[in-house]
Design a binder for these strands. Structure first.
Lengths: 214, 214, 214, 214
DNA sequence: CATGAATGAGAATTCATTCAT
DNA sequence: GATGAATGAATTCTCATTCAT
């Protein structure tokens, strides 16, 4: 039992070290030796914990996506109306980016590896995008049904757009790189969505009232 | 009397073939031999036209960014008011994605290579982002000054957000992959921005009136 | 608990094998694969011990020159008079050629590589030539001052000439190739130098008296 | 007929240009393109005049050795006694180095190529060395027979030694590189040989009397 | 378990040589 | 003849992965 825990702790430690290196040099330019060195262990030892280089990425992003899923569910549970849920979800997603900055910097590489991997390993990517897309589409439809969301928006395309915004913010972080940028972008995004999509008079959510009635 | 060849045309041709392969297999998994084969030429010939693999990417994306810059300038020239310019610019940017789909699919790899390149080659990336950011920031400020744009938006962060949306849409294309998605996302994005950022009563531009109101 | 290996011993072993191949095929025609095969190891393993092909040469000739330097110093320590030192030094140098035949055969390639190397690695060549030239020049001058050496010789040019003789003997070995040639050339060289440079009556040294006479 | 001459002139011109580049970069690092550029012609044109890269070397050194042979014969023709012939020959050989400096710098590469060439082309090298060795051996023997040359020298080994001196002086030039060095080395070499090998009282030759005696 | 020495498949790149114009 | 575009054989070098200790 303690063994288990030690092993798992070490795996996490190696994963963290690897992500750090991926972030600095990019996945493809990172050598297993770099990872081993960063983790302070021998080259062969990495293979005791991960099948191969791509596996590290996979495991790390499984953690990332699991946290995302969990947070998203919690967020949805806390809000009542569809419009509020929608806004809260977007807000959560962008805040998630801030919390997982280390992973975001490597996101593109994960994308690239997931997309071009030849072994047919399962990468969570397509699945979670599909899930989130369905979720958003449903929320928009419900929101429109109850008058929270402007009816002029096409639910599917708008869901795609929101996902794209999320992706874009993730990428942005890689470039601009200075802390705080994401947080402020998130605020603007929230304004944009509230103003642009949510019907006036419904723009209140638990994140904080933005517009108050008459 | 030697063989006369339009080197520039051939270069473009090889570049096109390379982009095709990059799109299919990803930049890092693409071998120079693949490119040569796709272009129907010998392996060594590729090196007659490009210094190395990354150079192909660089040249192709220079073309991409040049076209972007040109189109953006033209777009700005056609609109009058800052708000209209802003909307038109976003509209153009998203339409550019549609036109240059082949490049967008490889965008992430360009990102990755540009970011991690060890030789100190010049990649246009940072420069154009910086330029566009300044441009957008300026437009938002002007728009706010003349009442076109809601004053609650922070110009810099909002510029970043719009750039992120652009990046996100570019990426999206890689995943969803089916044509038309981008076009419909663009429409939703325009609605969102008009509704959310542009003051009511100013939401008309040459792209088409959306809300008139007396 | 990992595999323990005497890295230095293995390095020497690979170096030896490489020199053998260089000798047979010449440096430029030798492939890393040849060296690996000759050393009975894998291609990649060579790179664990040497940066590249030229590095092998460098390391091997560092050993050669170190031995030369050491031997030269010892030789000088054993002789008393300048003339005797001079003669003993030339004698040692030529005997060194015999001992290091394997290296001499590759000497020209070392020359060539050292001279044209593009990376700015340090090759010992210029340094040791410069050192030896100074040493010889000094000895000749001292010898002339004390009457051991004929005064008509210009010390610097004669030092150059003696170095050239050394180089020539090194090269010769490559061509003639049969053992023993060098040894006999050395004898003739000693006669020539004793007769030609050393004043009669001083032609005795510890290497063996040649002319005594009252 | 004029065609012939033009062709030959151009061939010489290309050869000269090639030697210049070989001298600067070394034979192996020189590309055919470098040679073409240095000669101011197209890459393919070089092949109109030379079979391949090694062929340029071969042709150029044929010219070098032809000149050597011719000069040696003339030199021998001018001297009378064996001792004088010997001295004159060595003197000529070293002066030849001075005259053909451009070739000497490339001598080692010629050596190397000649030694390791896989196609079984004829390189003059072994032949001329063998010829010169025989010639020198003969002269020494004759000189000893008539009392010109000290009897203690072994004719063959001494011939080898003299050849080695020649080789060494050729090499030296590559390193030291400053003009004049060779000329002064030659003077010292002549002193050494006259004093060391030639019997007193016979040390006069057409190059100039050195020792008269009372 | 941990390790790092060994490996060889694989990719980039070079460049002598050919040959259509 | 002259040329330089095209080529692919040849070589270097890298690095993920294995495995004996």
């Amino acid at each position: 039992m303690p063994k288990r825990i030690d092993r798992e702790a070490k795996r996490v430690e190696i994963g963290r070290a690897a992500m750090q290196v991926f972030r600095d040099k990019g996945f493809y330019r990172t050598k297993m030796a770099d990872i081993a060195q960063a983790a302070g262990i021998g080259k062969g030892t990495v293979y005791e914990y991960f099948r191969d280089k791509a596996h590290i990425l996979r495991v790390e992003f499984d953690r990332y996506f699991d946290a995302f899923r969990l947070g998203a569910m919690e967020t949805l549970g806390r809000a009542e109306a569809p419009g509020a849920k929608l806004v809260a979800l977007v807000d959560f997603a962008l805040s998630h980016v801030e919390e997982w900055r280390a992973h975001c910097s490597v996101y593109m590489d994960y994308f690239s590896v997931a997309r071009t991997d030849t072994k047919e390993e399962t990468f969570t990517l397509e699945e979670i995008y599909s899930d989130m897309r369905d979720l958003l589409t449903g929320l928009i439809r419900e929101g429109q049904a109850c008058g929270d969301v402007h009816p002029e928006f096409d639910s599917e395309s708008t869901a795609d757009l929101l996902l794209s915004m999320y992706d874009g913010v993730v990428m942005r972080d890689i470039f601009v790189g200075h802390l705080g940028g994401t947080s402020r972008m998130r605020e603007e995004a929230m304004k944009l969505i509230r103003n642009g999509m949510i019907a006036a008079g419904r723009r209140t959510d638990e994140t904080g009232a933005r517009e108050g009635g008459p």
